[in-house]
């Protein structure tokens, strides 16, 4: 645990339904995230991936078990929706998460990397979805979080935009090292980004397999990506 940024030890999460039935969203889950690792969770729709992220973020406390953020560092999240405050400009949205003693910090480097330099004064409803997602990434990385949670951050984007944002995410992750945990239903996205993939079963979610990818992200060519995708897909299909 000493070099782990997060230890998840959950025995279950159930929801009471309107018809007095009970939904078992999450089953037994136990895993640790090594510091500065990039872990992706893949699994079928509705298997409890987002529920788990909400539990880790402290937005859902009705589960059995424990979730331990070992460090005292900050946590940042990029949600499926950018969740930018529409009455604040891009720059104001990003600055809002900074603590008071970092309020005057320059955002130039981050905005340069993300291509947001010219959009600082734009309001969120002036941005395309891709640009809004970049702003959400900027808001997360400016905090230099100890733990970064990403819930399908590139869903609903066209392939070219999603590919570009995946590369930007990797660039930021390398330049601002953090422990990342990302949920995605896109196996190829997991193969591009992760150094470890947790494959979840159907609901109630449990870990069917854990795939470690030793090759650094920048060394993964198309052939290697194909092999990784195939490995993940085999596990997913077996569930």
């Amino acid at each position: 645990m000493s070099d782990s940024a997060l230890l998840v030890d959950v025995t279950g999460r159930t929801f009471d339904l309107a018809d007095n039935d009970t939904l078992h969203a999450v089953g037994r889950l136990r895993f640790a995230l090594p510091a500065h690792s990039f872990t992706c969770i893949v699994g079928p729709s509705g298997c409890g991936k987002t529920t788990l992220l909400r539990m880790i973020l402290g937005l859902d406390s009705g589960f059995d078990g424990s979730i331990d953020h070992s460090g005292k560092g900050s946590v940042a999240a990029v949600f499926q929706e950018p969740r930018l405050l529409p009455w604040r400009t891009v720059e104001q949205n990003v600055r809002l998460v900074l603590p008071d003693d970092r309020r005057e910090e320059t955002l130039d480097e981050l905005f340069d990397v993300l291509g947001l330099q010219d959009m600082r004064a734009f309001y969120p409803n002036q941005l395309s979805l891709g640009l809004a997602r970049r702003a959400a990434l900027a808001r997360a990385f400016i905090l230099q979080p100890q733990l970064l949670i990403l819930d399908e951050p590139f869903v609903s984007l066209d392939n070219a935009t999603a590919d570009r944002l995946q590369q930007l995410l990797l660039t930021l992750w390398h330049s601002h090292p953090t422990t990342a945990l990302m949920v995605t239903h896109d196996i190829r996205e997991a193969a591009i980004l992760a150094d470890r993939v947790l494959v979840f079963s159907n609901r109630p979610a449990h870990i069917m397999d854990e795939i470690t990818i030793d090759t650094a992200q920048h060394q993964r060519d198309e052939a290697m990506l194909g092999q990784i995708v195939q490995r993940i897909a085999q596990v997913v299909k077996s569930g």
Binding site: L57, S74, A76, A77, F79, R83, L85, W87, L96
Partner: peptide, 26 residues
């Protein structure tokens, strides 16, 4: 969704009120 964002980013009560709640009530 904005309330959750504010919770995740650990906004203080006053920050939440001023920047998240009151603008929605405008």
């Amino acid at each position: 969704e904005f309330a959750e964002m504010a919770q995740v980013y650990r906004f203080s009560f006053m920050k939440r009120l001023r920047h998240v709640v009151l603008p929605q009530l405008q």
